[in-house]
Amino acid sequence: MSVSDQLARLDLTLPTVAAPVAAYVPAVRTGNQVWTSGQLPFVDGELPATGKVGAEVTAETAERLARTAALNALAAVDALVGVDRITRVLKIVGFVSSAEGFTGQPGVINGASNLMGEIFGEAGAHARSAVGVAELPLGSPVEVELIVEIED
């Protein structure tokens, strides 16, 4: 089953790639890998929530936002090379804007990781970093980067 077919089966639609908020591109290819820039959880051009996780934003909401950010990262890959060329998810890097004392970053970034498993099965198993940070662009609670392998 193609990635597009799997997305349809899961009733997921890749969004339009968000315009960069600074001097970068959404994704780059080198060899058989695509690296995405950090993607925020934009929905129709807006952030559904802002603030720090563990204060203004719950961990559960942030986990859903990480899933959305990961879907946006897949959209960046799709726009560059086509999502159906992905053969493996290599790494996810997740950033969580964390209130003082919040230590649940891994659970938040599970939103992105679990999505990759749903879409890619075993090929979605990946290395990962889940990092707590003081602030993210535009007040976003989460940001997600992907590194994927593609067929030549």
Rank of each mutant, 00 (worst) to 15 (best):
S2I: 02
S2H: 10
S4Y: 12
L7W: 01
A8F: 12
R9F: 11
L10G: 01
L10T: 05
D11E: 12
D11G: 07
D11H: 10
L12K: 05
T13K: 14
T13G: 04
P15S: 08
T16M: 09
T16F: 02
A18P: 02
A18N: 04
A18H: 06
P20E: 07
V21W: 12
A22K: 05
A23N: 14
V25I: 08
P26Q: 13
V28Y: 06
T30M: 12
G31R: 10
Q33P: 03
V34H: 07
W35N: 08
T36A: 09
T36Y: 03
S37K: 10
S37Q: 14
G38F: 11
Q39S: 08
L40I: 10
L40Q: 00
D44W: 08
D44F: 06
G45C: 06
L47T: 00
A49P: 05
K52M: 15
G54N: 01
G54M: 06
A55Y: 08
E56P: 01
E56S: 12
T58H: 08
T58D: 12
A59D: 04
A59H: 03
T61G: 00
R64T: 13
L65G: 02
R67Y: 10
R67P: 03
T68E: 14
A69W: 06
A70T: 02
A70Q: 00
L71E: 04
N72G: 14
N72T: 03
N72P: 06
A73L: 07
L74F: 14
A75F: 10
A76F: 11
A76E: 15
D78A: 09
L80K: 04
L80N: 05
V81C: 13
D84H: 09
R85W: 09
R85H: 14
I86A: 03
T87D: 13
R88L: 11
L90P: 04
L90Q: 15
K91M: 12
V93L: 08
F95A: 10
S97G: 08
S98P: 08
A99P: 07
E100Y: 04
E100I: 08
G101S: 14
G101C: 10
G101F: 04
G101A: 12
G101Y: 03
Q105M: 12
G107T: 11
I109P: 00
N110S: 13
G111Q: 08
A112Y: 02
A112H: 05
N114L: 05
L115T: 00
L115M: 11
M116F: 14
M116Y: 03
G117P: 06
G117W: 00
E118F: 01
F120Y: 10
G121T: 10
G124R: 00
H126G: 02
R128C: 04
A130F: 05
A130Y: 00
V131M: 13
G132V: 02
G132P: 02
V133W: 05
V133M: 13
A134S: 15
A134M: 02
E135Y: 09
L136W: 08
G139K: 08
G139M: 11
